[in-house]
Design a protein around this nucleic acid. Structure first.
Length: 135
DNA sequence: GCCAACGTTGGC
DNA sequence: GCCAACGTTGGC
């Protein structure tokens, strides 16, 4: 199983909305690196959901329900979406501030490459994030 | 609201 | 193919 992190501005699409809907087509990705990451997702992979701009914290865990297919919202270009379903909210969201302060996490792409919206997460990083979220 | 860090576009 | 200009993202 692989681990991923996706970003969303909560005033556009939030974790709460994902929970309410029970499923989401993760659309609107218009960056090649992010798209390629989307395409590498396998069904069942764990996906951390991060709120950018507002909150700046990882708020929940989703899983890949359907692997990539063409983005119906793309007027032109070769873009993809995946379908995600919520698994569980984090008891304690893990903030960007905490991640930056945690030595073993400060090399995360989330910190090093702040504009990337879909990125892989190392298994070791995932484990640490989960334990932080349970504290 | 500002700005750094990128990514894209288009002229040459 | 280079690079200036511009646009976007996201942290602060």
């Amino acid at each position: 199983m692989n681990y991923w992190l996706v970003k969303s501005e909560p005033d556009v699409f939030s974790w709460e909305q994902l929970v309410k809907d029970g499923r989401a087509m993760w659309d609107g990705v218009r960056n090649y690196q992010a798209r390629n990451n989307l395409r590498a997702m396998k069904r069942g992979d764990a996906v951390l959901v991060y709120h950018s701009n507002i909150g700046k914290e990882i708020v929940g865990i989703a899983r890949v329900e359907k692997t990539f297919y063409p983005d119906p919202t793309a007027k032109e270009g070769d873009w993809s979406v995946v379908d995600l379903v919520p698994v569980q909210g984090l008891k304690n969201p893990v903030t960007l501030e905490t991640i930056k302060k945690t030595g073993s996490l400060k090399n995360m792409l989330l910190v090093r490459h702040s504009r990337l919206s879909v990125m892989p997460v190392q298994p070791a990083e995932y484990k640490i994030l989960l334990s932080l979220s349970q504290q």
